[in-house]
Every structure is written in structure tokens, then in C-alpha cells.
């Protein structure tokens, strides 16, 4: 059983060690141990970390063609190390890179690949799986029949494996055979974002849908978000109309966010939108339609025209903030 530990030039995203947790849940059914796979340079410290988090062995995969991320070379390397390890299954977290590397590795050996698996029942024959579709709003039960099972788990579906106090696993170098074609899709340049949208980490998101009516209509949402130190989001109807950039879109084909409070203004609550914000702690819906799905699924609602409600909320919030500065404790 091998698990891909994702990293970018030595920096592991917060999802990386979730792969070990998922792998262990499968390995326990198989009665085997978990081995980690780390591909590329600058990853020695991560190999030690994987060993401390329960990988009995860590394959440190290095090659001159693996100096920076490239999906084809990473896929080749993953397929080779999987074969060398004799693993019955290979898993990764279903990030952009995780799914991409596994898709390549599976394609190389014409193996099936099950993306975003949330349930596994190991059997002597085909395994029984449950995986998410439609960005998380539908569960598919399926059978996976393959000599080597290739699976990804959705990001944040399981917690990261904790460092244990058991025995430290071993680290083994592995040099894949790669031809000069393998790295033809390597990253050739990185461009840092110019002060990108803070949507992903915002505690409050004030989000607008068709009900906002125009690009100008977002001024009130901007104002409220500004007062609360939050960010502005939107639905796909809004980006399709050109009222906001796609980087503000929340949903299946937009961003997935988990703010403390999501204020949905004039958004109906289609499932493709809902999957992007269902991780919010609380939802406040502002909608003229009392029966809109966003209203019935929200924790709080204000019924009425957002064009009159938002300015009133803005001035009340402003009044209390000013009161707080003048009067001391608000």
C-alpha cells in the first residue's frame, strides 16, 4: 500500500499527510503497512516526517528530470515506484496534483482510477467503493476491479496523520527510469499572484447572486465586507454576466470556502453553489423568496429586497462600530 505525499519544492500543503490517514484505513483492511512516496527534490525533511507519521517505509524518488513538478514525469515515477513496491493499492489526496499524478499513473498501466473516494470495502475480488460526484452532492457506489487499486480521497475528508511515538520508518532512495520526453510538461515559470482575492481564508464572506442585479449593485456588498474585514463572493450567474471576476465565484467550478459566516444575498442555493460554501459554520440568507433553497437551508434569514436591506445593515454596522470607537466597549 503506497501513499503519495504531495509537496512543492519541499513545502507540503496542509492536505499532504491526509494521504497517510486514508492509506492506513485501507491498509488495516488489507492487513498490510503503509509506505509513503515522495517525488522530487528538497523533500528529505518530508521523508523523515512521513516516517514519523506512520509510514513504515518512505520511497524518496529522485531523478534529474524531477527537479520541478511535471505531471507526466511525476506520473511515470509514481507508476514505477508502485510496481517496484509491489503495492496492492496506491492513494493520494485528490488535489489538482494528486488527481493528476494518479490519472497519469493509472493511464500508463491501463488501470482504472477512482477519484474522490470516501468509503472503501476491501475484498478478495473487486473492492466496493463509495465516491463523490457532482463536486460532493451525490455519492456513487461502485466496484473497482483491478490488479492494483488506484484511489484518491477528497481534500479534508480525513484528518492528517499525526506524528506517532512508535518506531521511525525507513527511507529508501528510488531512481525511476525517465526518458527526456518525460519532463516535457514541467513547470517552466512561476508567477506570484498580485494581491489575489482573500476569499479562501476570509472569516466573513458577503456573496451575491442574480438578485444583486448588476456589477454596480456589488458596491453595497463590498462595503459590508469591508466593514467586517471579510471578502466578496458570488454565484456563477454573476460571473457569467461579467459582473465579477471568476476568482470570486463560489461553487463546484469555483472556490470552496469555509468561513465563519456566509451571507448569501440574492442567491437561490443551487447544489453547484451550495457545495462551495456548505462548509461555512453559519449561513445568513438575504432573499425576497422565503422558499428559496438558500433560505430554507440557512441558519438565519432576512426576507426582502437586498437593495434596501444591505444599506440598512451597512449603516447599522457602521453606527455600532463608530459607537464602539467613541464609547469604548460597544
Amino acid at each position: 500500500m503506497v501513499a503519495l505525499i504531495e509537496h512543492d519544492r519541499g513545502v507540503a500543503p496542509d492536505t499532504s499527510f491526509q494521504a497517510l490517514t486514508f492509506a492506513r484505513s485501507v491498509a488495516e483492511q488489507l492487513g498490510t503497512a503503509v509506505e509513503a512516496v515522495i517525488i522530487g527534490e528538497e523533500a528529505q525533511p518530508l521523508a523523515t516526517e512521513a516516517a514519523s507519521r506512520g509510514a513504515i517505509k518512505t520511497w524518496l524518488v529522485r531523478h534529474p528530470e524531477l527537479t520541478d513538478y511535471g505531471p507526466e514525469a511525476w506520473g511515470d515515477a509514481m507508476a514505477q515506484v508502485t510496481t517496484a513496491s509491489g503495492a496492492a493499492a496506491v492513494v493520494a489526496v485528490g488535489t489538482d496534483r494528486g488527481n493528476e499524478v494518479l490519472a497519469h499513473a493509472a493511464a500508463i498501466d491501463d488501470l482504472p482510477f477512482a477519484a474522490n473516494v470516501v468509503g472503501v470495502e476491501v475484498a478478495a475480488g473487486p473492492w466496493a467503493l463509495e465516491r463523490v460526484r457532482w463536486g460532493g452532492s451525490l455519492l456513487e457506489r461502485s466496484t473497482l476491479d483491478a490488479p492494483v487499486k488506484v484511489l484518491s480521497v477528497p481534500p479534508h475528508a480525513v484528518p492528517a496523520a499525526e506524528p506517532g511515538n512508535g518506531e521511525l520508518g525507513t527511507v529508501e532512495d528510488f531512481a525511476p527510469e525517465l526518458d527526456d520526453q518525460a519532463a516535457r510538461t514541467r513547470i517552466v515559470e512561476r508567477v506570484p499572484a498580485a494581491a489575489g482575492s482573500s476569499l479562501a481564508g476570509a472569516a466573513v464572506v458577503v456573496s451575491g447572486g442574480r438578485g444583486v442585479g448588476s456589477a454596480e449593485g456589488f458596491a453595497a456588498l463590498e462595503e459590508l465586507a469591508g466593514l467586517l474585514g471579510g471578502a466578496v463572493g458570488c454565484s456563477r450567474v454573476v460571473t457569467n454576466n461579467g459582473w465579477r471576476p471568476h476568482s470570486d465565484q463560489v461553487g463546484q467550478t469555483g472556490k470552496r470556502i469555509a468561513p465563519e459566516l456566509y451571507i448569501a444575498c440574492g442567491i437561490s442555493g443551487a447544489i453547484q453553489h451550495w457545495v462551495g460554501m456548505m462548509a461555512a459554520k453559519r449561513v445568513l440568507a438575504i432573499n425576497i423568496d422565503r422558499d428559496a433553497p438558500m433560505v430554507t437551508k440557512a441558519d438565519y434569514a432576512v426576507i426582502g429586497d437586498l437593495h434596501t436591506i444591505l444599506p440598512a445593515v451597512v449603516s447599522e454596522v457602521r453606527r455600532r462600530k463608530e459607537g464602539a470607537t467613541v464609547g469604548g466597549d460597544g
Binding site: Y300, A301, V302, G304, I309, S315, E316
Partner: peptide, 17 residues
């Protein structure tokens, strides 16, 4: 989810705050 309706129209501003 049990939805708590904070109010109707602009009068709900205080409840939102």
C-alpha cells in the same frame, strides 16, 4: 436546519448587527 428568520426588509438590520 431550522432557519431563524431575523426579520423582513430593512427593519431587520438591527437583528443582523
Amino acid at each position: 436546519t431550522e432557519t431563524t428568520v431575523l426579520g423582513d426588509g430593512p427593519d431587520a438590520a438591527a437583528a443582523v448587527a
